[in-house]
């Protein structure tokens, strides 16, 4: 089965012409054109008119292009967002399977009307309320279009009525539930570790890399990047390092020798290598290859465009 490599997903407010024009140069695996929180209320109508052209602009560097719609303006926003070149829709503030079904119904109609393959459009869901986190299982299994799901930690704080303190992570349970339920449903959980999801501070690339690595080690598969400076460290954090690749090749060799010698449990550097360790080594090596492929395709797209 092909591995979905969507390490970085760069948010670009649709009305920010500079950001939209530059977005394809940032090496993000995906770019999400934002009609929601990045656009002021009075510009919502104007913003919709910009989507079709922005899809082509954003996709020049080989990134997948998504559009984040407003939950409260779903019908008009979807109508403005489904054009050839768009990979899918980011649906915020989801609280029920019925809301997913409603979006899917309209997406299906628009696919037909606008000449997209039936079922081509994916969905990325954002949960932003206690209700959404609690009912996550029914929500993320509501459609096979759903490929990723994350928490919007700022809006979740609002819903919970809390003012989060940077030194105290209030989302241990919510994030854990997201990872377990999404993994069980074969949907990718996305997010970064606290407090970066709430306090979008300017941090060094090294700090972002560390927090994205921690997120990967909680089970996250990618990060929504509010700023282009996040993209490079996030991509690096979700790509197996050369050391990791070398180590896992060694694991596979040592394990294969052990099996040939009649056991599937063999010590290596003080650890025990058995079937799940060898299975994990296969995953890491396949992931490294998939990341290489993804990066090569982006390079090729940029070369063709320049």
């Amino acid at each position: 089965m092909a591995i979905l490599v969507r390490r970085s997903n760069l948010l670009a407010p649709i009305t920010d012409t500079e950001r939209i024009n530059q977005a394809s140069r940032n090496d993000a695996d995906a770019i999400t054109l934002d009609l929601e929180d990045g656009v002021v209320e009075t510009h919502k109508v104007e913003a919709r008119g910009l989507v079709k052209e922005a899809i082509a602009l954003a996709g020049r560097g080989g990134a997948e292009v998504f559009v984040r719609v407003n939950a409260a303006l779903l019908h008009s926003d979807l109508d403005a967002s489904v054009w050839p070149g768009v990979r899918g829709i980011m649906l915020p503030r989801v609280e029920s399977a019925a809301e997913v079904a409603q979006a899917v119904e309209q997406m299906t109609v628009l696919e037909r009307r606008r000449g997209l393959a039936a079922g081509a459009l994916e969905l990325i869901l954002l949960l932003e309320s206690a209700r959404g986190v609690w009912d996550i299982r029914s929500i993320i299994t509501a459609s096979p279009r759903i490929t990723q799901v994350g928490l919007d930690e700022s809006d979740l704080a609002c819903d919970l009525g809390i003012t989060p303190l940077p030194e105290y992570d209030p989302y241990v349970y919510a994030r854990g539930r997201l990872v377990i339920e999404a993994t069980a449903a074969k949907v990718q959980p996305i997010g970064i570790t606290y407090p970066l999801g709430v306090y979008e501070r300017r941090l060094s690339a090294a700090e972002i890399h560390r927090m994205a690595t921690d997120a990967r080690n909680l089970g996250m598969k990618g990060v929504l990047c509010p700023d282009p400076s996040w993209v490079a460290p996030v991509n690096a954090a979700f790509t197996p390092t050369a050391d990791l690749v070398a180590h896992n090749k060694r694991v596979r060799e040592v394990f294969a020798e052990a099996v040939a010698a009649g056991t599937a449990a063999v010590p290596l550097d003080g650890r025990m290598i058995d079937v799940p360790v060898d299975e994990w080594a296969k995953v890491v090596l396949a992931m490294a290859e998939a990341c290489d492929d993804r990066d090569a395709r982006k390079r090729a797209a940029r070369a063709a465009g320049s």
Binding site: Y173, R177, I180, T183, D214, R216, P276
Partner: peptide
């Protein structure tokens, strides 16, 4: 453990609690 880590796609022994919810 190893199987859980593989299922979640995480490295083990990274020095912080990765499995609190489960």
């Amino acid at each position: 453990g190893y199987d859980m880590s593989r299922d979640l796609g995480v490295e083990m022994f990274v020095g912080f609690e990765q499995f609190a919810y489960g």
